[in-house]
Amino acid sequence: MRGALTVCALGFALCSATPSYAKVVRESDVTSGKVQLDPSMGYIFVSGSTRLTGLFLRVPDQGTRNAYEQDRLAAFAKAQKHYRADLREWRSHNNLLDPSLRPLPGMPEEPKLADITIDPIELRDMEGFGPLYVFAKSENFSYLNAVKPGTWIYYGPLMLAANGATAGECFCLGTVRFEVKPGVVTDLGNSLSVAPQWDSDMDVGRLQLKETNTKRVAEGKEPIGVDKGPLAYGLPATLASWPSVKAELHASPKMNNYFGATVTRMAPIPGVLAYHRDVVVDERTGQEIASPTIISRAKIKP
């Protein structure tokens, strides 16, 4: 039963690790003056020809690591408290039980700090965008998120719901990262959709989509799921007075599949991201990037 409770606790922990949509900025808020540029915050702007969704993870900095360690120590203190209570209960039960009738239950195990795990530090700062809560929609759809400045990783076109459900894909096997400076809008434009050379790097989903579109074209129908148009950047006129910079994408290594989603990778981007088989290559330097050991989030059954 303890195992079942642990699984439930893990589920609740993941459910609670949902991205923040509270810092989504809408054009009407800017025009009305409800939202003004906060020089302490960074901003991520995404646009595309259709509604979009995606998830960004912030690379933990020292402040995040310190807060994480404090939470871990608090979890350890809580585990010690539970241990002491379990130990008292175990002792009192053992005084009542007759070992000749049935074996006495095992003594509770004292927790060790090294064994204490809490929510993954990589999920401390998440920002999701779309498909709802657009910044503006005209011929294009755009999204603007106010975020903590720092380095952000594009985790993939993944949408998380408050009940822990996910939809989409994790780019766990290779993706891109970019810097977000305070007081500046980092403009991704439609680069996340258009820059990667999807046709050069098939996965099961893209293969099925290609087959579907081959049939559709043969039937005289428009292909689906193809983001059209050239690479495009630029903010709406509403944000003309906000400082902005075009996002500079860099290759980013593999990551854990924290949400149990479908996994794939961002397709190569010339000059930015390439692969030697499954090894991520930073095309800006030509160097391979070491990836961490991938760890399953599933509970191990001994």
Binding site: G48, T50, R51, L52, T53, G54, G130, P131, G156, P157, L158, M159, A161, N163, A165, T166, A167, G168, E169, F171, L192, S193, V194, P196, W198, D203, V204, G205, R206, Q208, L209, E211, T212, I224, G225, V226, D227, T262, T264, M266, A267
Partner: peptide, 18 residues
């Protein structure tokens, strides 16, 4: 997965049911 890969990897996730 075919639906998920729509929009060439960014927008197709909308099609996923919860």
């Amino acid at each position: 997965p075919g639906i998920m890969a729509g929009q060439y990897g960014i927008g197709g996730a909308i099609g996923g049911a919860i």
